[in-house]
Design a binder for these strands. Structure first.
Lengths: 197, 197
DNA sequence: GTCTATACTCTGATAGAC
DNA sequence: GTCTATCAGAGTATAGAC
């Protein structure tokens, strides 16, 4: 948490790792590549992170943290409509804010597993928690399918290179629209800015 | 293509590989694990496939082949409505028929890359082709987002363990419904059976 | 506390004997 | 068609320089 030369190397390492992961995938990025890019040795990398998995977890951590916060905040709401709206808007904002990470996560099991492990402080993946709120209590099959398609579709579309050229605001409006349609929420203008989460 | 003892080992190898890939992911499955499960050595595996990537491609091949056929058949249709309906129904059927494969492909870049390489006989991934038909000519942003969400959502939901307990017919109905909703196609009863593709 | 040197095991992959 | 032997490179690990 404190600043300093050590923290600096650690930070540079994570930035470099994210870049290399994005370019070559997690599997396709070796510790040697990271070390070379930083001008240090493989063993030096190992000093900062005991395993490669620890690096992927640290890279994903900002997104995981935001997602975890979001789920807690949504779960704390009493009315289901508010719960769903808050979760949907928060999720869309999160996908946009962490676009690079989401793109990586959407197409790489290394990151996906890191997220499931590190998050929610427990055994259960919090994909379950998201789905539970989106599909509601005692959901029928249709509700479950719609919730799943909304969740995965928003994440995949948001991370897709296909839409990488879209601006944040436009992408946000589109993803919210499609999410509301799938979840049966009324379409409305929301004034919540992207930076509010 | 001919039957025989060689083909038998090859077949067993691919079955075993799919099972292990599903359990541990592509990256998490070593050639040694495959060899051990078959009671042969790693080098024997290399007799049947020159690289590990060749194994993942061969595992994915049945699904890739069906998808390729589907895209060609859809592209051959003249009217856009027919194109979209045929592609949607075919895609849903395909996801259901190759559930295990889709689950793997949805969460593993090893398989995803194998598919993009081996398919459509060329440089361009045929995810583009699917998207092109779904989003239509000169699509606006909304159409592109809806097509992306439909495509990825159907694949991810169909391959999700969350819906693994659903029967083929029920899953088919649900995925078709959500797909039609996203693509703006009229909901209708279709009599095309799963086995018709 | 930060890093280098070195080495160990396992992976994907190749060559050649049977 | 399968084996043994071997390889370079991966992730992991420790000892020790500074």
């Amino acid at each position: 948490m404190t600043a300093g030369p050590a923290e600096d190397t650690r930070t540079r390492l994570l930035q470099t790792a994210l870049r290399l992961f994005t370019e070559h995938g997690v599997e396709g990025t070796s510790l040697q590549m990271i070390a070379d890019a930083l001008g240090i040795t493989k063993a030096a990398v190992y000093y900062h992170f005991k395993t490669k998995a620890e690096i992927t977890e640290a890279v994903a951590e900002p997104g995981v943290r935001d997602l975890d916060d979001l789920v807690r905040r949504a779960a704390a709401q009493k009315r289901r409509g508010v719960q769903v709206d808050l979760l949907l808007e928060g999720f869309v904002d999160l996908v946009i804010r962490h676009r690079a990470l989401v793109a990586l996560f959407s197409s790489d099991p290394g990151i996906a597993r890191a997220i499931e492990k590190s998050a929610h402080g427990g055994t259960e993946g919090f994909g379950q928690a998201l789905l539970g709120i989106f599909s509601g209590p005692d959901p029928d099959t249709t509700a479950r399918v719609n919730a799943l398609v909304a969740l995965t579709g928003i994440a995949m579309a948001g991370g897709s290179p296909e839409l990488a050229g879209l601006g944040d605001e436009e992408l946000r409006t589109e993803l919210l629209d499609v999410g509301r349609r799938l979840l049966g929420r009324p379409r409305r203008r929301t004034l919540t800015p992207v930076s509010s989460l």
